[in-house]
Design a binder for these strands. Structure first.
Length: 266
DNA sequence: AATCGTTCCTGATAGC
DNA sequence: TGCTATCAGGAACGAT
């Protein structure tokens, strides 16, 4: 699933390829995936690419933005030339640029791209919490003190902290040796500090590895990320903990699969 | 106000 | 082999 590291990887790739390029045309294959007027975008130049949490934002030169959310299976691909074989039933939108083709695919059709006037962008993402990479100790302490919900649910709550999804919540909690069920407001200062460090280490390392290619995530050139090879607990139920050899458990929490080591994460 | 359960969607997989 | 049932999951939404 595209979480912060995957969206950041896509952002970095696209910065090298499509900034300063002109959008010549937009071909829409799935109306559900394209919100707003495409005429506001055709003929504009892409000035800048930003990321907030799991959102990807193209800043255009006419005070409009393109706001993407990839949800679970969204893919953004970029090719200088378009092969017919690249168009399939998951293809939602193709942006025709002067130097190539930006393809937005999404098998499960939850993802979307929206044309937003720059002045309305804040309103669009007003519910988004602090980006996980900018989180400070004081921020995290404040957020956790306000609820007794299980810590994992709070880490994944985009209104509190933006960018962490199921993979990296599981991985960060393991690294910090904290049980995912532990009430958020019961964490001691030392644990909060460990958790903050773990979040940053896991996210930055995942970015360095180009994200995690499970499900359908790939980089815009279709190459896979490599962080899935580094997972310590995610999808490792029944396998041995890399610290202590205890068998990794899988439970459901808030309807999501949760993986942890009973021995290491008290 | 905060939190919980449901819903959207389709491909992969399990079970018979 | 081929069918059906279940599962995966981000986040908006309505209900509590």
């Amino acid at each position: 699933m595209p979480e912060l590291p995957e969206v950041e990887t896509i952002k970095k790739y696209l910065e090298r390829k499509i900034v300063k390029q002109k959008i010549q045309d937009i071909k829409i294959f799935d109306r559900k995936g394209f919100k707003g007027e495409k005429n506001k975008v055709i003929g504009t130049k892409i000035l800048k690419i930003k990321r907030k949490g799991k959102f990807l934002i193209f800043i255009l030169n006419n005070s409009y933005n393109l706001l993407f959310h990839l949800k679970m299976t969204g893919q953004i691909l970029f090719f200088n030339f378009l092969r017919n074989s690249e168009i399939n039933k998951a293809t939602k939108v193709i942006f025709v640029l002067n130097n190539g083709y930006l393809i937005f695919n999404d098998v499960r059709r939850f993802g979307w791209v929206k044309v937003v006037a720059e002045k309305n962008l804040k309103e669009e993402i007003k519910n988004l919490g602090i980006d996980a990479l900018n989180l400070t100790f004081d921020d995290l302490k404040e957020i956790l003190s306000k609820t007794k919900r299980p810590i994992k649910l709070v880490l994944m709550d985009q209104r509190r902290i933006a960018g962490i999804g199921n993979i990296y919540a599981n991985e960060a909690l393991f690294l910090a040796k904290i049980n995912p069920l532990k009430p958020a407001n019961s964490l001691k200062n030392e644990e909060i500090k460990e958790l903050l460090e773990a979040i940053k280490i896991v996210l930055k390392k995942a970015i360095n590895y180009g994200g995690s290619s499970i499900s359908s995530y790939v980089k815009p050139d279709k190459r896979k990320g490599k962080y899935q090879e580094k997972f310590l607990v995610y999808r490792r139920e029944g396998e041995k903990c890399k610290n202590c050899k205890t068998v990794i458990e899988k439970i459901k929490l808030g309807g999501r699969s949760t993986f942890y080591c009973k021995n290491c994460q008290k």
